[in-house]
């Protein structure tokens, strides 16, 4: 087990290095740079652009340095916890992102719980009643969530929530509570706003969850131990929950890897439409305006989370499943 862990851990380092290269490529590849997009933004408004000011900024932001130097400074900075500087905010990246992490995690966690609550019973029912109208109907509803483009659904729900319930549009709380200390009223206001993003983001995840649970359950249900258990007269529900379900949800553990970055980035597009104070819109805006260190460090952060997440789930699986532990490394 220890050998497996050590090996697994050392594989992570070249992976992270490769990721940092790709991230840097991503933020360097698009033509132009932040200042170009800054200039055209000023122009669109009619502001006159003093070329000298732009040149000054170019120097200030270090655009005059060669690419490799910038890469090196960025990577070595990250190792010591310095994630660079956001041009748009004119603040260190950690200040910009850190501020929004809490609400992002809140939204994502609630969404995941919501997804599980919906997906579990439906998946179980569909698996035990394969090809019944109930199976079809429930899968259909699940898929409907997947099929509707999220950003459109968000806008429509937002509008009607405003017209019908008078919920203020966008954001996660009434504007008056922003930057205020937490209180009962603030928490209630958050709850009032939270359901729209949760439902919109949740619906798209539910279908996948239902489908995987159903497929895994179907596999398990055909195994002989199920027949044995049935033959021995175990009550159906108890039998279901105690044996096949336990085996079927292994994939949830395998999912942790991909879950972590999703929790942090949130559903970017929905968050943009709903003006959520989460990290997603920051990332999108940073990519659009080529605020490269903000975008780059954030991407790097997300990717590292996945790598760590995969490591965690591999370790968990190895710990749970001796076959993997002994075979040494063919995980997931």
């Amino acid at each position: 087990m220890l050998g497996y862990l050590v090996r697994r851990f050392f594989i992570m380092i070249p992976t992270l290095l490769a990721i940092s290269l790709i991230v840097f490529l991503i933020i360097e590849l698009p033509p132009g740079d932040y200042l170009e997009s800054y200039v055209s933004e000023l122009q669109a408004q009619g502001e006159t652009v003093d070329q000298k000011h732009i040149e000054f900024l170019r120097e200030q932001y270090g655009f005059d340095k060669p690419v490799l130097t910038r890469y090196w400074e960025w990577v070595t900075g990250m190792v010591v916890g310095d994630f660079g500087f956001s041009f748009e905010y004119r603040l260190p990246v950690s200040d910009v992102v850190g501020d929004r992490l809490f609400l992002t995690i809140l939204v994502s966690t609630v969404t995941i719980i919501f997804t599980w609550i919906i997906a579990f019973p439906i998946g179980l029912y569909s698996a035990t009643h394969q090809y019944s109208w109930g199976d079809y109907g429930l899968t259909f509803i699940g898929l409907l969530g997947l099929a509707t483009p999220n950003f459109l659904l968000a806008l429509i729900m937002l509008y009607f929530a405003n017209v019908i319930f008078g919920t203020s549009i966008g954001g996660l709380m009434d504007p008056d509570y922003i930057d205020q200390p937490w209180s009962w009223d603030k928490a209630m206001s958050v709850l009032e706003h939270l359901w729209i993003p949760v439902v919109v983001i949740g619906t798209s995840g539910t279908a996948g969850m239902i489908r995987r649970l159903r497929a895994n359950m179907l596999d398990e249900l055909q195994k002989q131990y199920v027949t044995t258990a049935r033959a021995k007269g175990l009550p159906p529900l108890r039998m279901l929950l105690k044996y096949p379900l336990r085996n079927a949800i292994n994939f949830f553990i395998a999912d942790i890897g991909s879950l972590l970055p999703n929790i942090i980035s949130g559903a970017e597009l929905v968050a943009v439409v709903l003006s959520l104070p989460t990290t997603g819109p920051v990332l999108i805006a940073a990519l659009q305006s080529q605020d490269m260190y903000l975008a780059g460090s954030f991407l790097m952060f997300l990717a590292s989370l996945t790598v760590v997440g995969v490591l965690l789930s591999d370790i968990l699986l190895a710990w749970l499943d001796p076959r993997i532990r002994l075979a040494g490394g063919v995980a997931k």
Partner: peptide
């Protein structure tokens, strides 16, 4: 590893970068 790296990125930023 390559697969792991590719999958470790959120999709939308990758799309954005590549289409830019």
């Amino acid at each position: 590893r390559i697969i792991e790296i590719l999958q470790s990125f959120p999709q939308i930023p990758l799309w954005m970068a590549l289409s830019a």
